[in-house]
Computed example of a mutant assay.
Amino acid sequence: MSLPVSPFSSDGDRHFDGLAEKFAGSLYGGPRGALRLALLDRLLPEMLRLDDQPVLDVGGGLGQLSGWFARRGHAVTLVEPAADMLDHARQALAGQPITFVEASLQALPQRAADPWPLIVCHAVLEWLHDPRAALAILAGHLAPGGQLSLMVFNRDALRMSNVVKGNLEKALDDRLEGTGKRQRLTPISPLTHDQIETWSAENGLTIEAVAGVRVFHDYLRHPPTTEADWTRLVALEQRYCRTEPHWRLGRYLLYTLVRTDTATCSRRS
Results as ranks from 00 to 15, higher is better:
R111H: 15
R90Q: 14
A89Q: 05
L118V: 11
E80L: 09
C121S: 11
A112S: 12
V124M: 03
A89C: 08
E102R: 14
L125T: 00
L125Q: 02
P117H: 10
P109K: 14
P117R: 12
G95A: 11
Q110A: 13
E102D: 14
H122V: 01
I119K: 02
W127T: 01
P97K: 08
A82I: 01
A92C: 02
M85G: 00
C121F: 03
L108G: 06
Q106L: 04
W127G: 00
T77R: 15
A83W: 08
V120C: 09
I119N: 02
A94G: 03
A82S: 08
A94L: 06
E80D: 10
E102V: 02
R111Y: 08
D87K: 11
D114T: 12
H129I: 00
A83Q: 12
T99R: 15
H122F: 02
F100L: 13
L128T: 03
F100G: 10
L125G: 00
D114S: 15
A112D: 04
D87F: 07
T77K: 14
D114M: 13
L86W: 10
A113P: 15
Q110H: 12
D84T: 03
W116A: 11
Q96A: 07
H122D: 02
L105R: 03
A83E: 13
A103H: 08
L78E: 05
C121P: 06
T99D: 15
V120M: 04
R111K: 15
R111C: 13
Q91F: 07
D87W: 08
E126D: 02
A123E: 02
L86G: 05
L128E: 01
L105A: 05
R90P: 01
P81A: 14
F100N: 12
F100R: 15
A89M: 08
D87I: 04
H88Y: 10
H122A: 03
L86T: 07
V76D: 05
P97T: 10
L108P: 04
A113Q: 11
D84F: 10
A123V: 00
V79Q: 02
V76Y: 03
D87S: 12
H88D: 12
L105M: 09
M85D: 01
V76T: 06
Q110V: 07
V79S: 03
P115A: 10
R111W: 09
D87A: 14
R111V: 12
L86Q: 07
M85H: 09
P117L: 12
F100Q: 13
L108Q: 07
A103R: 04
D84C: 09
E80H: 07
L128D: 00
G95L: 13
H129L: 01
A83G: 13
L118G: 08
L118K: 03
L105P: 02
Q96K: 06
A83N: 09
E80C: 10
T99G: 12
V76Q: 05
H122W: 01
V79Y: 02
V120K: 00
Q110F: 11
V101F: 15
G95T: 07
A92N: 05
